[in-house]
């Protein structure tokens, strides 16, 4: 008996072609049934008009399997259908019997998992201790051996230069308030501090502020890892969180990531610096992340 059904619709182009033919001749081609006894495959080709009056060809392929069963089961197999199924043709009715997609049993292994983790722990601690730090990407190697020496170093220099240019004119032009900003150690009343102009209730907005320093990086290559992003964005300032969207099954990157900076200024510099930057073989697109959820 048919064990699995597979119905394949043809591509729309072919349907249109066939539809035209059908309209011209005005007759539906007869339904055909092919049976390949060796392979046990039955192929049923059906033609019918769809709502638009075009001919649709449906090819159903059944795999026939012969299973030896006891007499009583074989006898029951010949029973006539009854009740609501009375008029159903032989074989499963596609409206009642649906073959669902492939799923797998998930095995849980409780005993084996806990031990290796403990063993790995001291090694992991050692790994995090940095003996050598690269000045360019803050990685775990000498500056001269940095893989981003050619790409990131000029970028950083340019950024540093930009910063100098923007910082310098400020003290010259500004008066007392600007002085209060730059001079450290001196008491500054809260009303004079940075961000005082933003108004009250800042403690409530702190969560939002956190989100405000988030940037979205798109057009990442599939091989991108979180560590790569860390290396790429760390030069701009401290990062609180990196979220790289990954495929659940394959673990490959989906091509976009969110980076949370501690400071909004760092984030804006990162946008200015990395947007349009060629990474792997793609050109990165960096912009402010839209706030998640509604406020």
């Amino acid at each position: 008996m048919p064990e699995s059904t597979m119905s394949k619709g043809k591509s729309w182009a072919e349907q249109v072609d066939e539809g035209d033919d059908g309209v011209l001749s005005g007759v539906l081609p007869p339904n055909t049934e092919d049976y390949d006894e060796k392979k046990g495959l039955k192929k049923i080709t059906e033609y019918k008009y769809n709502e638009e009056g075009k001919i649709v060809k449906t090819v159903k392929t059944y795999k026939t399997e012969t299973i030896k069963v006891s007499q009583s089961i074989a006898k029951r197999k010949t029973w006539k259908k009854f009740g609501a199924a009375e008029r159903d043709p032989p074989g499963p009715n596609p409206s009642n019997t649906i073959l669902s997609e492939e799923i797998f049993m998930q095995f849980v292994n409780n005993t084996d998992q806990s031990k290796p983790e403990e063993e790995e722990d001291p090694l992991g601690k050692l790994k995090n201790q940095k003996i050598v730090q690269c000045r360019i990407c803050k990685g775990d190697h000498w500056t001269t051996k940095c893989p981003y020496k050619d790409t990131l170093a000029p970028l950083q220099e340019k950024l540093a230069e930009d910063q100098r240019n923007t910082v310098e004119p400020v003290p010259a032009a500004a008066g007392a308030s600007a002085g209060a900003k730059t001079v450290g150690g001196k008491y500054v009343p809260p009303s004079m501090r940075d961000g005082a102009s933003k108004g009250r209730g800042e403690s409530m907005a702190s969560q939002r502020k956190d989100e405000a320093a988030t940037i979205r990086v798109t057009n990442l290559s599939e091989d991108t890892r979180e560590s790569d992003l860390q290396e790429l964005f760390r030069p701009f300032g401290p990062i609180s969180r990196i979220y790289l969207a990954k495929d659940k099954v394959t673990g490959q990157s989906k091509g976009f990531a969110f980076i949370n900076f501690h400071r909004r200024e760092d984030a804006s510099r990162a946008i200015a610096g990395v947007s349009g930057f060629g990474y792997d073989h793609l050109i990165l697109n960096v912009e402010w992340a839209k706030p998640s959820g509604q406020q």
Binding site: M1, P2, G91
Partner: peptide, 8 residues
Amino acid sequence: LNGERLGT
């Protein structure tokens, strides 16, 4: 075996 409905 194949999910065919015999009846109601």
